[in-house]
């Protein structure tokens, strides 16, 4: 009902106050979106964007988990690096665009942007997770005389896992945003570039349709990440129960 209300409100506002070239009514945008869904161009662009998202995410997760564990496991290293990490994290990754444009192609830069932004989130989630371990692990694992590897497998990793679940949910939306930014700013092939070029060529209805579909893509990715998180945590709870039994 809310959705229908919002759609109606938008339709009325768009028709009353705006030029269809600036704000096209929903009754024009939706058919255009459906037309796009049946065409090949949209799916090719979506595929490219999703590929950049996927590659960037894999790099960010792998590098982030490794770096997080490397930095977080040794207290001295963590102390020595914390100020540097604090400095680097709020630096917006898009400042890299002008620098990277000189040495890499736009597709690589887009992947790198995704990877760098998500990397920070993963590293910090791993560090939070490791901080959570400390108290419990030091007392119990040592008491049970577990070896270093066994300690990581049975104590550290299960504690960090929920934090990685949270990270996953966060980085998926960040990854999509940056993959699109790559297309908007540098014209890296994909949805972002498609949106920008339809804006430049004045096809505003097409552009609105694309934005509408991009939101749908966002919802899809978000649901996927939540599903993955649940799976991950389900496994986590299951192994814990096993360990107890």
């Amino acid at each position: 009902m809310g959705l229908a209300g919002a759609a109606t409100a938008y339709e009325i506002l768009a028709r009353l106050f705006f030029d269809p070239a600036h704000v096209p009514p929903l009754s024009a945008v939706v058919p255009e979106a459906l037309r796009l869904l049946t065409g090949e161009r949209f799916w090719t662009a979506t595929g490219r964007t999703l590929a950049a998202v996927a590659v960037g995410l894999v790099i960010a997760l792998a590098a982030g988990i490794l770096a997080g564990f490397a930095l977080g496991s040794v207290p001295q290293v963590r102390r020595a690096t914390s100020s540097t990490l604090d400095f680097l994290r709020p630096v917006p990754s898009i400042v890299l665009i002008p620098v990277l444009v000189l040495v890499l192609d736009v597709r690589q830069i887009t992947v790198l942007l995704v990877a760098v932004s998500c990397f920070w989130i993963v590293v910090f989630q791993v560090l939070y997770g490791l901080r959570d371990v400390d108290r419990v692990a030091v007392e119990t694992a040592r008491a049970f005389r577990l070896g270093r590897l066994a300690r990581i497998v049975h104590v550290t990793w299960p504690t960090v896992l929920p934090y990685l679940g949270t990270a996953l949910r966060l980085i998926v939306s960040v990854a999509l945003a940056l993959a699109l930014t790559g297309g908007l700013v540098m014209g890296a092939a994909g949805l972002g570039e498609m949106i920008w070029s339809s804006q430049e060529s004045g096809e505003s209805t097409g552009m609105y349709a694309l934005v509408l579909l991009t939101g749908g893509l966002g919802i899809g990715l978000d649901q996927l990440a939540r599903l993955a998180e649940r799976r991950l945590l389900h496994w986590h709870v299951a192994t814990r129960r096993e360990a107890l039994a």
Partner: peptide, 17 residues
């Protein structure tokens, strides 16, 4: 919907609107 819509795509939309 807006929770998941990536903010940068608002730029071309607002540019047009």
């Amino acid at each position: 919907y807006f929770r998941v819509l990536p903010a940068p795509v608002l730029i071309p939309v607002l540019l047009v609107a």
